[in-house]
């Protein structure tokens, strides 16, 4: 078991590097997270509507202007509302959304442990 632990420690140290992504990946990530207003079931990345194509150009431009991911989200949120983001941020509207599944997971665990008194 000791060997196993040691192995994991070394392994994790090696894993923490080059976390940065380039602009292309960032652009894809951002457009995947924006919802298209014309075809409302799709992300901007997936959509080929005129609106979505303009959004893609604009995201590119904003990235070149040096805006961060979150600044770009804020920009679109201000124009079109929270709806435009596929990744709802944690605020008073979405506490239940984010925390209820986790709560269910914990309650589930509690039920399992409480109801099944396992034989030693």
């Amino acid at each position: 078991m000791k060997i196993l632990k040691l192995f994991f420690v070394i392994f994790f140290i090696f894993s923490f590097n080059n976390l940065a992504a380039n602009t292309d990946d960032m652009k894809i990530k951002i457009t995947k997270n924006l919802r298209c207003l014309i075809c409302q079931g799709q992300s901007v990345y997936d959509s080929d509507s005129e609106f979505a194509n303009s959004m893609k150009v604009l995201v590119d431009k904003k990235l070149k202007d040096g805006l961060s991911e979150n600044q770009i989200y804020d920009f679109f949120k201000e124009k079109y509302g929270q709806w435009i983001l596929y990744d709802p941020e944690l605020n008073k509207n979405t506490y239940i959304l984010w925390l209820l599944p986790i709560l269910i997971f914990l309650i589930g665990g509690a039920i399992v442990v409480k109801n099944f008194k396992f034989r030693k």
């Binding site: 150009v57 604009l58 431009k61 124009k79």
Partner: peptide, 8 residues
């Protein structure tokens, strides 16, 4: 490119 429209 339709960018200004989005600014609006």
């Amino acid at each position: 490119e339709g960018i200004n429209a989005i600014e609006w």
